[in-house]
């Protein structure tokens, strides 16, 4: 009888031990950060600047194109790349070259990087500089309006088919330029980081500047 009771006791204890293993393994506490550090998170999306050379097409060139492809101004070029440098208290914590997304680097830049910093008052400096130099050439918008006027005056048929085409092209180029990253962006400031706090540095495409997002 006592042997049987002993076996039952061993079985119960073993069952309790197995259950304890499940309970213990279900939530193992692991540290997420070292000590009282905080984090700075660089997180933004922006369009890289398009570096391009534009020219106004002649009447003959426009006429040679299919109707639905009759652009007034033709631009060729590529997207800019940027050098990013981040220092905290004068110490370089991030240095990289940023290109547009996609295989052809023609998609928006999506940037996300985290790094740990000690808590307290920190000198934070970020610079994002376009790496390419842009030659001083007449822009497409200089040629555009004249071309548009020529079209309006001399090609009524085309204007009737595509009214406001040139204006649309111009506004599209303007919109792209306005939403693209400017050649130089800098953020130089002092921030106070609490233990465990995450400070997010992001890009505001409307104000064309970097800023902090905190709670």
């Amino acid at each position: 009888m006592s042997a049987r009771l002993g076996r039952v006791a061993i079985g119960v204890l073993a069952g309790a031990f197995a259950a304890a293993l499940i309970v213990a393994g279900s939530a193992v506490s692991l540290p997420l950060r070292s000590g009282d550090s905080g984090r700075i998170r660089l997180s933004w999306s922006a369009r890289p600047e398009r570096i391009e050379t534009c020219r106004t097409l002649s009447d003959e060139e426009v006429a040679a194109l299919s109707e639905h492809m009759r652009r007034q101004v033709e631009c060729e070029g590529r997207f800019a790349t940027y050098a990013l440098e981040v220092t905290v208290d004068g110490q370089l914590v991030e240095q990289s070259v940023i290109t547009g997304g996609g295989l052809r680097a023609d998609r928006p830049i999506h940037y996300l990087r985290d790094f740990e910093v000690a808590d307290g008052k920190r000198e934070f400096r970020l610079s994002l500089v376009r790496r390419e130099t842009v030659p001083e050439t007449p822009g497409a918008d200089d040629a555009g309006p004249d071309r548009e006027r020529d079209d309006d005056d001399h090609d009524d048929d085309a204007a009737r088919r595509e009214p406001g085409r040139s204006e649309r092209e111009r506004s599209e180029r303007r919109r792209r330029e306005q939403t693209a990253l400017p050649p130089l962006l800098e953020l130089d400031t002092t921030i106070v980081i609490q233990p465990g706090q995450v400070v997010i540095v992001t890009f505001d495409p409307v104000r064309q500047e970097f800023g902090f997002v905190t709670r």
Binding site: V23, G25, S26, A27, V28, S29, L30, P31, L32, R33, G38, R39, R41, G196, Q197, V198, I200, T214, R215
Partner: peptide, 23 residues
């Protein structure tokens, strides 16, 4: 032993530690 629930997710806070399911 109710299963532990960590602090609510907050992108602005990194908690000191978090309960991880080992299995």
């Amino acid at each position: 032993f109710p299963a532990r629930l960590g602090p609510a997710a907050d992108p602005f806070i990194t908690p000191g530690e978090t309960p991880i399911n080992f299995f």
